[in-house]
């Protein structure tokens, strides 16, 4: 039996607060990127975005050629087609923690990073970064796919494009964090995904009931706020309120997740 201390265990790097946080982020990054389902998720949502973009672009061109007025800036059309991509980012964030409870690897995680807040922050940082990147990439490829087929009928300005890219990035990152917080609280993928479907679907269903306060409230659901950012609309509120609304959802979900993490046994 060879001794276990064959190579030095301690690196030469200095210790300290920020580096502990950094190592927890590196840990979570390694986990997320070394699991195949992450890459499937990214691939599927890109394929869906491109396919939807081509479909929308093609039908815009066909309608416009037939004399209908369907002209709309490509980035805005693209954002509306990103609903599947948004949902998949939330699924990714959900599985990021829920699968740790299913597989039992949460024990390894908390053994490695025992401070709950630091562990959760590591995951938040990784999901935020991934969400930002996916938001940028998806809105860009969606715009390109639409512009490719719709041509002049989807002309847009550089400002429109940059604002939609920025809005998507912020939207995706904060949606991801919201799902992460919910999944940390629920500890189950099924429960969290049902809640996510509710967050997406309720604003569409609620107006049917014609209850005024409920309809008002549903305007503050994350997808509605995300749409304000993606399309740069001013109703029902502007971009600053929309950002605050998304931040509030993310903060609430994270607080719930942290509370459960703090109180319950692993």
């Amino acid at each position: 039996m060879s001794s276990i201390s064959g190579s030095p265990a301690t690196g030469a790097k200095t210790r300290g607060g920020p580096s502990r946080l950094g190592s927890s982020i590196a840990f979570e990054w390694t986990k997320l990127t070394s699991v195949r389902s992450t890459w499937w998720n990214v691939t599927i949502s890109s394929v869906v975005t491109i396919a939807l973009g081509l479909l929308l672009g093609g039908s815009m061109k066909a309608s416009a050629d037939n004399g209908y007025d369907v002209a709309m800036p490509a980035p805005h059309v693209a954002f509306q087609s990103l609903i599947a991509a948004q949902f998949l980012v939330m699924v990714m964030a959900t599985l990021f923690i829920a699968s740790e409870y299913t597989s039992g690897s949460i024990k390894t995680t908390l053994q490695s990073v025992p401070v709950r807040a630091r562990m959760l922050f590591g995951k938040v940082a990784v999901i935020a970064a991934i969400g930002l990147v996916i938001g940028v990439v998806q809105s860009t490829i969606g715009t390109a796919a639409i512009a490719l087929l719709a041509g002049d009928y989807s002309s847009f300005t550089a400002t429109e494009l940059s604002l939609t890219i920025l809005g998507s990035a912020v939207d995706f990152a904060l949606l991801g964090i919201t799902a992460l917080g919910l999944a940390t609280a629920f500890r189950s993928a099924t429960g969290t995904i049902i809640a996510t479907v509710g967050l997406f679907g309720l604003p569409r269903i609620v107006p049917i009931f014609n209850i005024e306060w409920l309809t008002d409230f549903s305007q503050y659901f994350p997808t509605e706020a995300g749409t304000v950012l993606g399309l740069q609309t001013t109703a029902p509120y502007g971009w600053s309120t929309a950002t605050l609304v998304l931040l509030a959802w993310a903060a609430t979900a994270l607080t719930a997740g942290y509370a459960v993490l703090h109180i319950r046994d692993a």
Binding site: A9, A26, S112
Partner: peptide, 8 residues
């Protein structure tokens, strides 16, 4: 991943 979490 574990090694990175503990700067090993």
């Amino acid at each position: 991943g574990m090694a990175r979490s503990n700067r090993l």
